[in-house]
Amino acid sequence: MASVAITPMEQNFLVPNGTFFVELIAFGVLLFLLGKYVIPPINRAMTARQEAIRAEFAELDEAKSEAEAAEEEFKSQIADARHEAARIREEAREQGAAIIAEMREQAQTEAARIIEHAHAQIEADRKAAVTSLRAEVGTLATTLAGRIVGESLEDEARQSRVVDRFLAELEGAS
């Protein structure tokens, strides 16, 4: 029975032969090489890339929040600047008004001073004129009156009296 069975068994391709062990070893070697040298680096590369992508996303988020913070700061600074500008404008207006007021006061003081000065000058001139008139009008009037009345009015005392009386009348009239 056994000798009869052997011949067809050898040709039956469903029954394994020595090749089985060769295949076993071959696949074992392949599995070892792939598992030790090929697959771990690929896994590492995949992990590294995922990490890189995650890191980039984190960076992106960070950059975004930073940009938002910067924008916020920028806005607040703009608001500050606007506020500052308004304050400066207000101050300038106040200062201008103060300067104008001061200048006006100065001008008025100056004007008052000039007017005062002018008044004093006029007064002095008038006094000088009056003095001068007093000196000359007497002589002129005496000469004139002497010529008209033919009477000598050479007397010093009389002459002065007449002139004084005339001037007093003149002043009283004015």
Binding site: T19, V38, I42
Partner: peptide
């Protein structure tokens, strides 16, 4: 034991190809 030489050769060819591809990738 009986060994199927053609199977063994083609197994080696396939295994070497896989390894080449694998090491090329790494």
């Amino acid at each position: 034991m009986t060994f199927n030489i053609d199977t063994i050769i083609s197994t080696l060819v396939a295994g070497v190809l896989v390894l080449l591809l694998g090491f090329w990738a790494t």
